[in-house]
Computed example of a mutant assay.
Amino acid sequence: MPMISNRDRVAHHGNWVGQDLQAEVVPHVEAWRLFSSGHLLHRRVVATDLRDAAELRPDAPDATGAVAVWDVLLYLVEVAELGARYATALSVDTVSINVSVHNIAGRELISGDWKRELHGTYVTQAESLTASVVLAAPALLASPRTVGVDLTQQILRKFGLSVADKILMEWQDGILDKTHDPL
């Protein structure tokens, strides 16, 4: 995170570099800007908006769309891991991570995984959901996954979902195990 395409040139500007990526080969749309100040702005489309699969559709009849727990979880763990790499590369004392999910009103939080069900309906009416953390660099370096899970929990709670951190860690482990299986 962010995805860097070899097909498109990285745009170089006075105080930032970045790319705007469209879903050409894989269902993925994002834009990113890395500033000389050390700030990173990353915008991406949630997976449920780019994939047409039954397990990614909302169950609530009045929901305007869905957001999959695994999409939030994997992304925010990646964000925390990038923050840890930033802390190392830039030799900073503290790292601030601020995440916002916009245009979310009416969306239902879904599992997105047929093997894991959410018991209940979790629809937000908020236009935006936010999560943030400010940490000393050593704390982030010690456990970026835990920080990613904490950020995920902040978003999930705003949908009304309460789930144990251990479950999210196991969920991420299960997803990673699938991606590393030999063919």
Results as ranks from 00 to 15, higher is better:
L156T: 03
E127A: 15
T88L: 12
L90Q: 15
D8A: 09
D181R: 15
P182Q: 05
V25A: 15
A53G: 01
S100E: 07
H13T: 04
L40D: 04
R116M: 11
D165H: 03
I4K: 14
S128Y: 00
L151V: 01
H39G: 10
H102Y: 12
I97D: 12
I4P: 06
H12L: 06
L50Q: 02
V99Q: 08
A84R: 13
L176C: 03
G14S: 14
S111R: 02
L151P: 15
V101S: 05
S36C: 08
D173G: 00
E30V: 02
E55V: 11
S96R: 14
A84K: 14
W32K: 01
I97V: 11
P27C: 02
W114V: 15
D93A: 07
V10R: 05
T88D: 13
I4M: 03
R7M: 10
K115D: 13
V147T: 09
P58T: 05
A80H: 01
Y122K: 11
L76D: 11
E30I: 03
L161G: 15
S96E: 14
V123N: 12
Q153H: 12
S143R: 01
V101W: 14
D59W: 04
L151H: 06
D150Q: 06
S100C: 03
R157C: 04
E127V: 08
A126R: 14
L183Y: 10
P58S: 11
H12N: 11
Y86S: 03
V79Q: 12
A89L: 08
W32L: 04
I167N: 03
L156E: 07
V163Y: 09
L109D: 04
A136H: 08
L109P: 03
V133H: 01
L129V: 13
